[in-house]
């Protein structure tokens, strides 16, 4: 196939995929908003939104408004932004670590957040104080990032291998810390375990307002650096010879990806596999170009987490933590995709 028709075909494929993902996302959001113990129609949901945003004055019962506006919509929007954020962070981490199997949690940022959250939960229980769990998780995640950067910066040129090693060291230490906190928690351990498993239940507008700007700004910033990230995939030295300041690029993208991951994790705990599967699938199905991959991953990540969360809500009489579901389904699916690709020699 000649270049012109290959480029044209790729453009059509990307446009179709974007439209399809957008359609699924909108339909998924509408379906998810209707779904639940209380039967609410799509029309009523639109009316509640119109009432809240434009003071439209539709006659809607107070309990319907409360369920839609205070429970379902924040949860849906959190799923969308957290899914998008984790997927874009996955693209960034795979790019800067030059490893298609890396994910937002490779550098121990999520373990840092888990440690902070566990510490806050246990101190709140033991001392009867009120430490905000998401804030503690965020602070610890950022401190983890700072320590990973300082360990890795010892190497010449801030190499990806040093980053991975620093991440493993930080992750291991913090993971032991989480285990220690669990031991201290005694019979209250379930609170810590449930947070770590990752769930989108009890999301509020404050969570949406925390996730949305961070995810949008970080995605935009990362998109600006997308081409440089492409060139870095050619290898450290090759990228430098093409004029890319690899050390600076790596540190900037590391901060962008980590902040996005930290915010996502501190809102809803550790949700695995979204950041690994989404970029990986899109890269092999559509394109490796980060300029296209980042927005598409954001869309696909949003769709995936929204669907997983909706499934988590309806699959069991209680509720399965969505982090458990994404890992349960994502793991085998990833093995299937990976082995299929390897067999085909791609």
């Amino acid at each position: 196939m000649d270049i012109d028709s290959a480029l044209k075909k790729e453009k059509i494929k990307i446009s179709l995929c974007t439209v399809l993902l957008l359609a699924i996302l909108i339909a998924g959001m509408a379906a998810s908003a209707c779904m639940g113990a209380m039967d609410i129609s799509t029309g009523d949901i639109c009316r509640v939104i119109a009432n809240k945003l434009f003071a439209a004055g539709f006659d809607i019962p107070g309990n319907v408004t409360a369920v839609v506006w205070n429970i379902r919509l924040p949860r849906i929007l959190c799923a969308v932004f957290v899914g998008a954020g984790l997927a874009v962070a996955g693209v960034i981490f795979q790019g800067i670590l030059q490893n298609p199997l890396a994910d937002p949690y490779t550098l121990g940022i999520s373990t840092g957040a888990s440690f902070g959250a566990s510490l806050a939960i246990i101190l709140n229980i033991l001392w009867g104080i009120y430490l905000p769990v998401p804030l503690c998780a965020l602070v610890c995640a950022l401190l983890t990032l700072a320590s990973v950067i300082s360990i890795a910066s010892v190497s010449d040129g801030f190499k990806s291998s040093s980053l991975v090693i620093a991440g493993i060291i930080a992750g291991s230490v913090l993971s032991s810390g989480v285990s220690f906190i669990k031991m201290l928690a005694g019979e209250n351990v379930s609170a810590v375990v449930f947070w770590i498993m990752g769930s989108l239940s009890a999301m509020g507008w404050s969570d949406v307002l925390m996730a949305a700007p961070v995810v949008i700004i970080c995605t935009l910033l990362a998109s600006v650096l997308a081409l440089r990230l492409d060139i870095m995939a050619l290898g450290e030295e090759a990228a430098r010879s093409l004029g890319v300041n690899t050390a600076a690029l790596r540190i900037v993208l590391l901060i962008i990806g980590s902040v996005m991951t930290a915010v996502c994790v501190c809102i809803c705990g550790v949700i695995g596999f979204v950041g690994l599967i989404v970029p990986h699938l899109l890269r092999y199905m559509l394109t490796a170009k980060n300029r296209v991959l980042m927005p598409l991953s954001a869309l696909f990540g949003a769709v995936l987490l929204l669907c997983a969360d909706s499934a988590a809500r309806i699959l069991a009489s209680g509720e399965i933590p969505v982090g458990v579901l994404t890992t349960l389904i994502g793991g085998p699916f990833f093995i299937f995709v990976f082995t299929r690709r390897e067999r085909r020699g791609e």
């Binding site: 270049i3 030059q98 050619l234 030295e237 004029g243 890269r283």
Partner: peptide, 22 residues
């Protein structure tokens, strides 16, 4: 450089285009 490797599935065209980045 010796043994340059790329872990990601860029097309050959995309790889050559990167030469125009400077």
């Amino acid at each position: 450089y010796q043994n340059e490797e790329c872990s990601f599935p860029y097309t050959c065209f995309e790889t050559v285009m990167m030469g125009l980045y400077p």
